[in-house]
Simulated assay, not measured.
Amino acid sequence: MKKGLIILGVVAVIVIGLYSWASGIYNTAVTLDQDVKESWGNVNTAYQRRNDLIPNLVSTVKGYAQHEQSTLTAVIEARAKATGITIDPSNVTPEQLAAFNSAQSGVSSSLSKLLVSVEQYPNLKADASFMKLQDELASTENQILTARTRFNEAVKPYNNNINTFPRNILAGMYGLKEKPYFEASTGADKPVEVKF
């Protein structure tokens, strides 16, 4: 009888230990996944801020630069394409992130062309509302960079948590998958050519 209780006690301790270990791994993964989702929300907020500024910038430039219509149209179309892509951070794939990144790069590229064309309009460059919008846009680009960096910083511990042994075994059983990082846009390693 005593021997049976000892064996039952040892089995109970082992079962409780395994349960605590497995639930700890899962709970840590859930906590880190929430950090990734929060960071993704911050990325979206920064991009939304930029998308909200674009119509004001385009309207301001339109008043000065009537014959820059093709550049203005390119900015509007790039913005529309970028806002049309949505990603669920819990199921994000590298392909989805690449498509999102490509659309956002299109916005950045068309904005750069717009700002270069603005150099031809000294009155526009001196306009207070344009200068304020340009400063806000520069600030927003910095916020986007920061949000993307923080997203990558949130992805790293999550990926480390689910990829290290023996956690990777349980992560596979729970269906947890590695999350992709933001990467530099294609061509970002080359200097930007500015022509006046």
Rank of each mutant, 00 (worst) to 15 (best):
D127L: 08
Y158T: 07
N168C: 13
Q66W: 06
N27M: 07
A128L: 09
T140A: 13
L111V: 04
G187L: 05
S185E: 12
E141G: 06
G4F: 15
Q104I: 03
A22K: 06
K190V: 08
A98I: 04
K195Q: 11
V43Q: 03
R150G: 09
N142T: 11
E183F: 06
S108E: 07
K156E: 00
G187H: 07
V58E: 02
F196P: 06
L72E: 07
A22I: 06
V58D: 02
D189A: 14
L114Q: 07
F130T: 03
N123A: 11
K62V: 01
E119D: 14
T45F: 00
I7Y: 14
Y26V: 14
Y64D: 02
D135S: 15
K62A: 09
A128H: 10
T149H: 11
T93D: 08
A29H: 08
G84Y: 07
E178L: 08
I25G: 01
L111Y: 04
L53H: 09
K113S: 13
R50E: 12
P166K: 12
P89E: 05
L133V: 04
K195S: 10
V11S: 12
T146D: 15
G63Q: 01
I16R: 01
T186Q: 13
W21R: 08
R49H: 06
G172Q: 13
N159H: 11
I7T: 14
F130Y: 11
T93A: 09
R50N: 12
S185H: 04
E119I: 06
D189G: 11
L97A: 08
D52P: 06
F130W: 01
N152K: 06
K195E: 05
A80Y: 00
N27D: 14
R167F: 13
T71A: 10
T60M: 04
V118Q: 01
Y181H: 08
K81H: 15
K156T: 15
Y19M: 12
Q48N: 15
A22M: 13
R79W: 01
S20A: 15
V118A: 15
I16D: 09
P157M: 04
A80C: 04
T31W: 08
Y47C: 03
D88P: 07
K156P: 00
K81I: 02
T28W: 00
Y26I: 07
D33Q: 12
L5I: 09
V194H: 01
I54A: 00
A12M: 09
P55V: 01
S139M: 13
G4P: 02
T73M: 06
F165V: 05
D35T: 10
H67C: 10
S59N: 14
Y47I: 01
L137S: 15
D52L: 09
S70A: 13
N160Y: 05
P89T: 03
H67S: 11
S90T: 15
S185P: 04
R167L: 03
T60P: 06
E119T: 08
I54T: 05
S185Y: 03
S110A: 12
N101P: 00
V36M: 03
H67D: 12
N159I: 02
A80Q: 12
N51L: 10
T164P: 02
G24L: 04
E68A: 09
G63Y: 14
M131C: 03
A46C: 03
L97V: 10
I162R: 13
